[in-house]
Write a protein that binds this DNA or RNA. Sequence first.
DNA 1: AAGATAAACGAATGTTCGTTCTTTTAAAAT
DNA 2: ATTTTAAAAGAACGAACATTCGTTTATCTT
Lengths: 195, 195
Amino acid sequence: MRAKDYNKETAIREQAIAMIVAEGFHGLSMQKLAKAAEISPSTIYIYFDSREDLLNKLFYYVEDIFNRETLKGFDPGMGFEEGLWLQWKNRYRYAREYPLHFFFSEQFRNSPLIRHKDIRENQFRSAMQEFVQRSEQRGEIAELPPEVFWSLAYGPFYTLLKFHMGQSNMAGKSFALTDHKLKHAFRLVLKALMR
Amino acid sequence: MRAKDYNKETAIREQAIAMIVAEGFHGLSMQKLAKAAEISPSTIYIYFDSREDLLNKLFYYVEDIFNRETLKGFDPGMGFEEGLWLQWKNRYRYAREYPLHFFFSEQFRNSPLIRHKDIRENQFRSAMQEFVQRSEQRGEIAELPPEVFWSLAYGPFYTLLKFHMGQSNMAGKSFALTDHKLKHAFRLVLKALMR
DNA sequence: AAGATAAACGAATGTTCGTTCTTTTAAAAT
DNA sequence: ATTTTAAAAGAACGAACATTCGTTTATCTT
């Protein structure tokens, strides 16, 4: 029998992500996707059950890479300053290594549809929670309502990152996000959070 | 001659916004919109040139209300703490008074398409810029690269707001954003920004 | 080399899309 | 009261949509 060509599956995935980033995910048409991946429309359905299945799998695929990249070198037992800075650096590196993935995720973050339901990122979430909890117990940071903590710890980071990645821009100017600026913002966040 | 029924125009607008918030803006179909507004599809084209024209006008419409609401009681000459807090309060009130508008805007903020080009919010922008500039000159806050300032001043606010509005949620729990929590976050932001 | 099997194809399905055409209707102007 | 005008309607357009069907093709097993 003829074997599956898994290069085709990745080709489909990559092209789909690129297409969604370029035209919005409403602009993902199966027929255009087939054309971009240089295959027949029906071939897509060998690898994915449906358009919806494809979208879901894209989502999980992107999320898995994000989780893996973000946890690199991370240990929930780290000191707060070191740990949070590593998170910033990891997420920054991720956004630069996988810019299409980053835009893809941002597009869905405020979108009504796709799976705002399940939380299968248990390992990831619990690592993050443990890290914060331990930092609190050590007395490095004040005990805050979790959403207040998160807004402070990552809100500025993502706002800054989105400026940089040029999805938003202020008055037409695009901003180069230097490591220096990132560190600058980080120090201010620390100033807000640390006892 | 027969007069235009401008109730119809607003009906179209309201239904369109509701539809976009509910199903994503790819889900705005002219025929479904017509059905929802209880008019004929062709009637929409009396008030709007095309689907794209409708989307653009929706965008400007929402933006105008946002600008107006956000500038209420605001004066660029205000002290930094008072002025920024007023901005937070105004934006919070806006999001609660016009939740559909808020979701609508959030949906477009990370979307590739619509008008990431023009800046017609000149009056609004310049008021904000002047406010920050004066605060710096008065020595209330450190001079920061503008995007670093903005990430700190509003990043936490919007992150918090989105938690509250339930577009995102952490581990299935939804968070009630009390005035107390808002103020709490604000104090931390101040701690980061003020000299 | 022959047969089996599933990958891959391209055409075709029925549906929905945005938009336009033609006709009817209501209200303002005479 | 009649004429005029544009609003409003609803059917109809071709194009694009997600998906499926029947056939062909490539590769593995024997």
